[in-house]
Write a protein that binds this DNA or RNA. Sequence first.
DNA 1: TTGTATGCGTTATCAC
DNA 2: GTGATAACGCATACAA
Lengths: 359, 359
Amino acid sequence: MAVNAYVPDASFGGTTALGWLKWVIFMATIRDVAARAGVSVATVSHVMNESRFVTEDTKQRVLAAIAALNYRRDGIARSLRRSQTGTIGAIIADITNPFFSDLVKGIEDTIRGFPEKLNLILCNTEEDAARELLYLDVLMEKRIDGLILAPAGGNVAYLEALVARGFPLVFVDRSLSSVTADSVLVDNLAAATALVAHLIARGHRRIAVLKATLHASSITERVQGHAAAMAAAGLDFDAGMIVESASSIDAAFEGGRAILALDPLPDAVFCTNNFMTLGMMRALNEQGLRCPQDMAIAGFDDFQWADAFRPRMTTVAQSGYDQGCAAARLLRDRITKVQTGPAVHLVHGTALNIRESSG
Amino acid sequence: MAVNAYVPDASFGGTTALGWLKWVIFMATIRDVAARAGVSVATVSHVMNESRFVTEDTKQRVLAAIAALNYRRDGIARSLRRSQTGTIGAIIADITNPFFSDLVKGIEDTIRGFPEKLNLILCNTEEDAARELLYLDVLMEKRIDGLILAPAGGNVAYLEALVARGFPLVFVDRSLSSVTADSVLVDNLAAATALVAHLIARGHRRIAVLKATLHASSITERVQGHAAAMAAAGLDFDAGMIVESASSIDAAFEGGRAILALDPLPDAVFCTNNFMTLGMMRALNEQGLRCPQDMAIAGFDDFQWADAFRPRMTTVAQSGYDQGCAAARLLRDRITKVQTGPAVHLVHGTALNIRESSG
DNA sequence: TTGTATGCGTTATCAC
DNA sequence: GTGATAACGCATACAA
């Protein structure tokens, strides 16, 4: 490796403010390559981009110079010139939630397959709209080509303006009714209804909800699913049986405690996402209660180990990975203008995994 | 929001190849702002960066123009001029591994607190050195300011060259002995030794290892820990008791099956990471074997729900989050040249969580 | 088949 | 206290 062995010739630029950096971290430019190959910068550029015919001979000389100087083109300068960065953003709630880490992996695996060699800038809002706004601003300043967003629930005007400007935006997991953009979602209402109906079919009557406090359409719909299933069965429930907590395992643990303090005790709990389920189980555990004997639990979002430990959890499974893949494709199609019409909304399927935690 | 209401005046640039884009997605430039405020671009720049004194009056005019035009400076042009991008890369093994998602969250939370407003580009190698190389190239082309890396095990010359050039690099989770860079690690050898010693103390004698096949120093050391503990106890074991599988739950499931096919059957299994533990449990489950009655299990890496489900897992816990925070700080200090001496190596602590899976 | 020269939007160095 | 203007490194329109 001769990366740091090359000594720039005298033609190399002067010492501006940050010029010294270039001496420490020397990076050959397209001009250095052109000079060494005895051609113009245009030719070097065209060789790298295969954007016009170059005789085999000159091409080889250019390639040799590139190798000798260990030249890598400057993506920043290239981005400035082409007005596209090859970078997309993903603003999600929380990467430690298995649903989102699967989703992000789906995005990554998919964009890696694209010839455009897209990159992903990752941001966690932790369900905070203020943080979302901050990230939106930073990403816009970074001139990302498009954005995959699990909206925290605010910034509607900002997002509307973005979409109005034609900026490529894809919603995942949830959407904002007032913002018309592509989306990849699941039918939360139907899935939650089916899950709670299953609980009812198992004989449970007092079914509490451990609800993540967030302004996400997905969560709202899941709670509506609970109400729908209860109503369909002619079952009543009071608002006190819907306990809210922030969307983290620790907060859900407290929420779970609150549910276990309910009087009379519910005989089943519907957890609106991964974190709620985990927190609920921890609370149950703390009180020495057994699932499903003492309390049945069913949750939205499956997790990879849901069937390897006891109790095996009854869940609605959705593939974060597949949704990530779909979102990435949608976004790419918008960026490349393969897709230009009105917003497209993808609804992915869910599966009801009936295991033992529901009794 | 008047983002898309502004009609650029006649002075607005001509139509180059991508010029049309500017009409669809109109973005005011520093010149538009200067023109509207009746000042020079220099003044606008200085107002935005607070880099020289500007009278309150002109400053207000500039600020008003910025607001009116909804101007956001172009980070790309800025990066080109300043030769720094405010972007760092993180190349890790797999974001769906809870250890790494915690780590990434630690990085994010930390860089968000920096005044530099750093951004994170995320890459998963899935333990593939070829993929790592690809990402290294892309990230270098993107001119990232620094890199946090969990090396897949190859690309040594490339990384050496990077470090020799003074490029800020921090290893996490594992390191490459031939590359001298900052690192954040744990004492894998000691922790694994203690874990296996615990298994031995519990009366287990035939202790198998479910080992992730990867060229990571961390895994090698964990396996050495097993050997050390066995030797210290005067226990023998044959190589057949060390079963390898790729580092994914599915592969570990197969590996777990292989272990359960061993004859004679081991009475305990040491799993070298999260995924191995999960796959092993799934295999156990498939065969209808109980843990710890039929087989004791202990794993490296704790997970948030390790104590909420049965069996509660005995594990070595390390904080991916804290390691992410530390790595981000180390990297920032290198980037800003707050830290300039020889490589610093941080060794974070681990905790032995003795729960029920070890019998 | 190749070269010259302009400009992308900033920042920073001068000059006034 | 402010303004002109030259880079930054590349892609590309236009020449040759």
